[in-house]
Design a binder for these strands. Structure first.
Lengths: 114, 114
DNA sequence: ATCATGCTTAGCCATATCGCTAACTATCGC
DNA sequence: GCGATAGTTAGCGATATGGCTAAGCATGAT
């Protein structure tokens, strides 16, 4: 059980910012240039660049430069570790709920018996 | 489509820290006191308290105080918004991949025809 | 009443984050 | 070549984060 998973920390941190999530949503439609991505956000280019490098370091996007244009695209499988972790947790948490149910039912049975 | 979803930001931010994730894992087993949670982390109580309040503000845990003891417990459904967002994104991203496949196949067809 | 326990508050320090401007580089179109 | 376009780098300021210590408060045990 991964105690210190830097990947997950990078991933969740990248997803924790609304600007970055909206950039991802935009890129989900189609790859785009840096300027295209900056437009809707209302932020300056250097600011957007920083967000993009956060996304890239988290593995969520790839970028490539052709001439003076940098094109950004999503990396679909990058979300998998996050999904996997959430699924695992849900499974564990629900298992605990089941045990809790069993416990409660047991208590009720006992009380009924008294 | 939620442009600015503070819930998601709080959620993902809370999950972005390894200490907080390990606290959640610990709580997945059973509710615990603050001191119990602090032990494994090797961190001081005030530090752990801060992590706990981040988790609580994100809705991931609830706490209640009985006498001088504060007991913390997970809120299982709190992960749902994150899961939902990830699922939505995956769906959209995969749809885009399908369109890309179609595009590539079309190009290949054209090239074969020349 | 006193002491130990469990938590809380206040405040400090170092670092990270998020926004910006200004200045620089590199390419494209003419 | 020259100007416009696209991106990059450097660095600033405000705020947030994550750790700590020290001191305070409330409760439980004796």
């Amino acid at each position: 059980m991964a105690k210190h998973d830097p990947d997950l920390s990078l991933l969740f941190h990248a997803l924790a910012d609304p600007t970055r999530r909206s950039i991802l949503s935009r890129l989900a439609e189609t790859p785009a240039r840096v300027t295209d991505l900056a437009g809707p956000t209302g932020l300056r280019l250097p600011t957007v660049m920083r967000h993009l490098s956060v996304l890239e370091e988290a593995g969520l996007i790839t970028t490539s430069k052709d001439g003076r244009i940098r094109t950004c695209a999503i990396v679909p499988e990058a979300l998998d570790p996050a999904r996997t972790w959430l699924d695992e947790q849900r499974a564990i948490w629900e298992a605990r709920l089941d045990r809790l149910d069993a416990f409660v039912m047991n208590v009720m049975k006992k009380e009924r018996a008294e």
